[in-house]
Amino acid sequence: MKNHLRIACQRLSPLQSQTILHIAVSLMLMAVISAASHFTFEHGCREKTIVVLFAALPAIPMFAIILLLGRYLARERDEYIRMVAVKALLWGAAVIVTGDMVQSALVAFSPDFWSLDPGTLTIMNFDLFFTASAFSVAIQLRRNR
């Protein structure tokens, strides 16, 4: 498994490695912001400025991720790989939309599902999105060896 991962990393172009690294940093930033907001609100801080700040801050890494994906697609010179990436991103989007629909259905049956922090849900959505996209890339490239 470790060997497979090493080979996969070696096959990545500099643009792909750079994009993955920047997305990972953005996801970590999102997790840190979510943890910080959770910690602040847990300790009873409800100051308007702080609330607005923590409501707006998670948008920065989210927009960064969207811009990074757009920049990757614009700069990828291999048109077939670009097509694979677009298909993978669409699969990722389809999976999170389906996930959200399933979650909404579950909430209708049991309101306990709302106990999850919205910040955690956003990070989970992005994790699910990238996991589904990565699976899609792997499947598409495996079918075309």
């Binding site: 010179r77 291999d78 048109e79 077939y80 790989i81 075309n144």
Partner: peptide
């Protein structure tokens, strides 16, 4: 061609039709 090997394979097997520049 400055593309990936997978691109060449996809074109050869007819899974992908290249753009005019390619």
């Amino acid at each position: 061609l400055e593309v990936s090997r997978q691109s060449v394979n996809a074109i050869e097997t007819g899974k992908y039709d290249p753009s005019l520049p390619l």
